[in-house]
Design a protein around this nucleic acid. Structure first.
Length: 109
DNA sequence: CCCGTGACGGGGG
DNA sequence: CCCCCCGCCACGG
């Protein structure tokens, strides 16, 4: 595969492929892109994707299933509501059945 | 230019 | 909900 001349673009590409009702983690995406130690950059990439509505950033949470990026969605529970609208159960900022609905690009793609 | 911070994650004590 | 430090790298003060 190519290197990462366009890391951000790659992140967006993967995020777009996350099926509705499923979630993945920043680390899983970073690992899939060959930059396992740059999970933080994935978060930065999504932060930069504020304008692109076509990117379901709500489906990306941290390794514990916590909605660590909820405060980047304007409303108090905007991220949670988007997820619940897809059938993802969220309680106390945490995705329920996380292990069950987890989508790993490295294996599920 | 140095430094703290962040939508993270792994490893050590 | 153990606590702390490190690597990652972009950005703002």
């Amino acid at each position: 595969m190519e290197e990462n001349p366009n890391f951000f673009e790659r992140v967006y590409q993967v995020v777009k492929l996350i099926p509705p009702g499923r979630v993945t983690s920043y680390g899983a995406i970073a690992r899939y892109l060959g930059a396992a130690k740059s999970a933080r950059m994935v978060g930065w990439a999504l932060n930069n994707s504020h304008n692109m509505e076509s990117i379901p950033a709500q489906r990306v949470v941290n390794r514990f299933g916590l909605l660590s990026g909820k405060y980047h969605f304007g409303g108090t529970n905007a991220m949670q509501q988007l997820l619940e609208a897809e059938g993802v159960k969220v309680k106390e900022n945490q995705v329920q059945n996380f292990n069950d609905i987890f989508w790993d690009p490295a294996t599920d793609l």
